[in-house]
Design a protein around this nucleic acid. Sequence first.
DNA 1: TAGGCCATCTGGTCCT
DNA 2: AGGACCAGATGGCCTA
Length: 151
Amino acid sequence: MKSCKPNSLDSSLESEPQCKGGIECVGKCGSERMENAARRRLAANARERRRMQGLNTAFDRLRKVVPQWGQDKKLSKYETLQMALSYIMALTRILAEAERYSTERDWINLHCEHFTQDSYHTLVGPKLPGESEHYAQRLFGYQPEHFQMAT
DNA sequence: TAGGCCATCTGGTCCT
DNA sequence: AGGACCAGATGGCCTA
């Protein structure tokens, strides 16, 4: 995914002698200003590239902790955010439910085993071919159309 | 081939 | 002034 825009400005910008002013150097100062602007632009481009790479690293880390059951292909950034939202909401629901039981042991016996993947399969039935995209939706209620008008 | 997703460049705005 | 952040534009890659 590379841009086709050339990056040819970064050479020959070093070690330009300082302009001391005066009529004869108006053109030269102008070209130095342009070179400085070009240099700043390139630096800004590099910073922006690093910033976006950092953002993508964060997305990758989020993908690793978000459920992706049955998904053979990587979640898009948008899907990752929506899945993370649904996941957090599901975990919040679980915590709230846990508070309704008097002892931790009661709650663990009742619910914990339902959140291993194997027991999930027994809960909702065997996975069918072509059905993988519904897994997360059924457990977490992740349905993209619910989020289209979010914000 | 159209559409989705993505990386990169770029100019604007805000902040330190 | 310079860096961070953002959104729009552009073009490449991939898949149905």
